[in-house]
Structures are given as structure tokens and as C-alpha cells.
Design a binder for these strands. Structure first.
Length: 477
RNA sequence: CGGGGCGUAGCGCAGUCCGGUCAGCGCGCCUGGUUCGGGACCAGGAGGUCGGAGGUUCAAAUCCUCUCGCCCCGACCA
């Protein structure tokens, strides 16, 4: 059993923090709510970022960068936007040794400043669609920070697009939700439920907000990313207009969408176990570690040589590999070192292996060990990484399905949730007031109205009215 | 902001009720030696104005007052 890591079944919040510390993902900063992302944690984020960035480019987007400071008045233009964000803004009132004429807001999100620029750049239907993305930091003075999940400052990407028609903008909104869904499944190996947010949970300033909801190891939900159809809400207040083919002035229809470093937290909680992190190969900074063992043996020099050769071969074939040739450290210590960090495959090579022409592969996913021929070790490792990637998604999906329940009445739900945290599928025809009541009494929320509906009709679990809509409820981070 | 808990060595903690051989333990770190197929062992060593400021006392980590900060649970959220 892992030292220094609390049993997740005993205290999940503590376990989460222990893993972050032991795997050296992040450290707390001197400013409340802020964290330092350490090299290993940042490497995971970079891999996710690169994967996503390629997907954005494939779907026609280009990157740009907008400033971190936004005139305070910008935030105030869109009524709902101010209401939603005002409480959590960091505002710069002094700079250059004097009070500013107009305070500057440290961006909590960039819809406003981007619209300010869009209104200058967009004049004709020929300028549309405008498909931009930016990788940036944003600041939200949250009441209760948690490492990666909700930090005061966080890194993210925000896509902002402008279109000639509602139809196109809505299509874009759904396309990007699809990109996120696919990314979560194929890259992060985390199953998600794509769906629409209720009015109560909608982004401040959006017409519709869509989300991908993932399940964490304790059965709680985590909103992994959002994609919004903004309608003409921002266009109207920033006068983002264009002339259509008929020389008519029109407001652009917009989308915005984002995912953040929160996803690192999602990976920790969706895959981690009592021994620490478990990383899907695609986002593992180290996919395979070669650990030479039996270093006191007379054959140690040959073992070391073979280990070096193996690591080099793997590297040449595109595997992110590390050779752990640290001296004066027991193999057990090294094994644990890489296990806590979630490295998917460990390749042990000792005198006995060398003699048998094999290498021992230990898999982080389930702790199993298999012997593979040294001659085909690179191909075999690559195959292992691929199958691990798939298995992790499958396992996570099974976990989620096993913790997805149905509830046909509020009483039923209230009774079961505390004992069985998870996703609850219910027939839903409730109002914002109903949602408030649910949250007050159970601290669960309506996570989303899944895009995939079962069909048929049933009785709303809280109002009793007949409906054809289902919703997913859960406690959430 | 409400409710809990906590600030003592890099990390995790004991000591605080009952003031005085209490500046301590484990891990980590440094040196040397022996080890090395699942978190090695022995010996030696470095490291702390006990969160801060006042006060009480012959004497304060310990008691009193004020203050700063952190963590957990809730309201807010990517």
C-alpha cells in the first residue's frame, strides 16, 4: 500500500490532495486559491493542450491573443454577464503609482473584449464565420478554491466565433461540444455525458449552454467543459454587425467554448487509485519507464547497456520513455516512484531477464506483470500502450454505468443519494425553483439534459407532470 | 460570510488541558560504509526567533488579549 496517500474510500478530498503532492503535480502558492503547476503536472496539461489545439485547427480555428486587462465598463454592458461575474472579479484600480481613471478588470473570460475587437474586424458577410481561439489565463475570485478544480487563476482555452446565422452558430456550438466529447473519450479516457444546461446553470450571457459531465471516483460529477450559443447578446451591446448579401445590417450570432486546467483534476479523480495517479498513455508525460534491476550482479554493466538501448529504441519510435538509472536507490523505491506518478508501463530489466532474452512489463492499470521478448519489446510496448488507453476508457465507462441510477420520486432520490453517490437519471419537467429546492435539500444539482434522450414519456420526478425529457442529477465539484 | 479544524525543522506530527531538563519524533536531506528482482540498513551530521504583536510571570510553544494565515464542510463556478 502507498505510504503518504490517504485511502480514497476514507477521505476522498484528502486523497486528492495527497496525490497532487506525491505525484508532484502542483503546489500551493502564497496567494490564497492560487497554485503553482509543477513540471510534471504542467506536462500533462501540455499534452492535453496540444491534442486539443490540433483538433481546433482541424475544425478551422486559428489562435490569437487578447489582453488580460479589460475596461470595467465592458463587463457592465451585458446585463446577465455583469450579474454573473461581478462577484468574482479581480479589479485593478491602481497602476503606475496612481489611481486609474477607469478600473481594469482582470479577465474572467473574454467575450466582451473579443466582441469589442470583432466589431472592428467584421463588416461584411464575407468576413464570416470568424473562428478564433485563445490559450490564456483567467482570474475568478472563487469562494472555495480547490487545486486544479477551481483555482483563482487558471489556464484554459476559449474559443470565440461569429457567424452570419443562428443556425451556423448553433452548429458550431454543437461541433465543439463534439470535439470536447471526443477528446475526453479518446485522449483523456474519461466518459462524459454531453448535454444542455438548465437556465439556472447557464453561462452568464448565453442563450444556451452545453456541457460535458464526467464522473469522478467518488461518484460526484465534474463539468469538464462548456460550449455556449451566445445568440446576439454580446453582438447587440458591442454592436458586432455585418452587411449581408442584401446590404442589410445584421448582428452576428456567436459561440464560445472552453476547457481548462480543471481537466488535470478530472484525470486525477477519474483514473487515480489508492496508489496514486494512473495516466492514460496519450497524456502521460512518461509513457514507459525502463528500470534496470539487479545492479549488484556481475552482469550489471550488460543489463545497464541493454536498458539504455531499449530506452533509446523506444524513444526513436516515438514513445515518451525514461530510463531510471539513479544509483543507490532500491528497485522497489523506483517502482513506487513511477507508480505514484501514473506511468502506464514499467519495463523491468535484470540479469535473469537478459539471460532469457526478455523484459518484464508491469502495467500501472492493474499491477499485472507480463514478460515480453526483448527483441520485439518496442512493438509490444506500443501495443500495450494502445490497449491500456482503450481499457482505461472502458473501465471508467463501466465505473460510471455502475453508478448511474434512476429515481422516480424526489423522496426516493433524497433517500438514496447519500448512500449511493452517482448520476441519477430522472424524468424532468422542473423549474429553477425546483432546482433550488433540490440543491438546498440534497446539495445535488441538475447536471444536464443529456443530448441523448431515451424517448417515451414519464412523470417528472419532482413535479409529477408528464414529460418526455430526462435529466441527470448529481453532486458536483 | 456561516459551521468545524489547524499554524512547532523541507513534509507529516507529538508536546499546550496541568507554565519550569520540551526543542522532540517519523520521513526527507548531507557524509561514510554495507545493500539493491517491490518503498534497504548501520553510524555520524545539518536544520526550528514554536504564525505575528502585546501582556501576565522569577520563568511562556504552554496562560490572557489582539492579529495574520491555512485547511475541511456549505453558498459561487471552467
Amino acid at each position: 500500500m502507498a505510504k503518504n496517500i490517504t485511502d480514497p474510500g476514507k477521505d476522498y478530498a484528502r486523497w486528492y490532495q495527497d496525490v497532487i503532492r506525491e505525484a508532484e503535480l502542483a503546489d500551493s502558492a502564497p496567494v490564497r486559491g492560487c497554485m503553482v503547476i509543477r513540471p510534471y503536472g504542467f506536462a500533462i496539461w501540455e499534452l492535453m493542450k496540444d491534442d486539443l489545439d490540433a483538433r481546433f485547427k482541424e475544425t478551422g480555428h486559428t489562435n490569437a491573443y487578447f489582453p488580460v486587462f479589460i475596461p470595467q465598463s465592458f463587463i457592465h454592458r451585458e446585463a446577465q454577464h455583469v450579474e454573473g461575474f461581478s462577484p468574482e472579479l479581480a479589479v485593478v484600480t491602481h497602476a503606475g503609482g496612481r489611481q486609474l481613471e477607469e478600473p481594469l478588470v482582470v479577465r474572467p473570460t473574454s467575450e466582451t473584449i473579443i466582441n469589442h475587437m470583432f466589431s472592428k474586424w467584421i463588416g461584411s458577410y464575407r468576413d464570416l464565420p470568424m473562428l478564433l481561439n485563445q490559450w490564456a489565463n483567467v482570474v475568478r475570485w472563487e469562494l472555495r478554491p480547490r487545486a486544479f478544480l477551481r483555482t483563482t487563476e487558471f489556464l484554459w482555452q476559449e474559443g470565440h466565433t461569429a457567424h452570419a446565422t443562428e443556425e451556423e452558430a448553433r452548429e458550431e456550438t454543437m461541433r465543439m461540444l463534439g470535439v470536447y466529447t471526443d477528446f475526453m473519450h479518446r485522449t483523456a479516457a474519461i466518459p462524459v455525458i454531453p448535454g444542455r444546461k438548465t437556465d439556472r446553470e447557464r453561462f452568464a450571457g448565453a442563450v444556451d449552454t452545453y456541457t460535458i459531465e464526467a464522473m469522478m471516483g467518488n461518484g460526484w460529477a465534474l463539468q469538464g467543459g462548456t460550449s455556449h450559443y451566445l445568440g446576439t447578446n454580446f453582438a447587440k451591446v458591442f454592436d458586432t454587425t455585418f452587411l449581408d448579401r442584401n446590404n442589410q445590417r445584421q448582428y452576428v450570432h456567436q459561440s464560445s467554448w472552453g476547457v481548462s486546467t480543471r481537466l488535470v483534476g478530472a484525470v486525477i479523480m477519474a483514473h487515480g487509485d489508492e496508489n496514486g495517479l494512473r495516466l492514460p498513455p496519450k497524456i502521460a508525460p512518461v509513457q514507459a519507464v525502463v528500470v534496470p534491476v539487479g545492479m549488484q550482479d556481475p552482469r550489471a554493466p550488460e543489463v545497464m547497456e541493454a536498458a539504455q538501448a531499449l530506452a533509446e529504441d523506444l524513444k526513436a519510435r516515438g514513445v515518451r520513455v525514461r530510463l531510471d538509472d539513479r544509483e543507490n536507490m532500491s528497485p522497489g523505491f523506483k517502482f513506487n516512484h513511477w507508480e505514484v506518478r501514473g506511468v502506464p508501463v514499467r519495463l523491468e530489466l535484470g540479469p535473469r531477464d537478459l539471460e532469457a532474452g526478455q523484459v518484464t512489463a508491469a502495467l500501472r492499470i492493474d499491477g499485472s506483470k507480463t514478460r515480453i521478448p526483448l527483441s520485439g519489446a518496442v512493438d509490444e510496448t506500443k501495443a500495450l500502450l494502445e490497449s491500456i488507453q482503450e481499457r482505461m476508457l472502458r473501465d471508467a465507462r463501466e465505473f460510471q454505468e455502475a453508478r448511474t441510477y434512476e429515481a422516480d420520486s424526489f423522496d426516493d432520490f433524497m433517500e438514496r443519494l447519500p448512500e449511493r453517490p452517482g448520476f441519477y437519471r430522472v424524468w424532468w419537467d422542473g423549474s429553477s425553483d425546483d432546482e433550488a429546492r433540490i440543491q438546498e435539500q440534497t446539495s445535488a444539482t441538475v447536471r444536464c439534459i443529456p443530448l441523448k434522450q431515451p424517448g417515451g414519456r414519464g412523470k417528472c420526478f419532482i413535479t409529477g407532470r408528464a414529460t418526455s425529457t430526462t435529466a441527470v442529477l448529481a453532486r458536483a465539484y
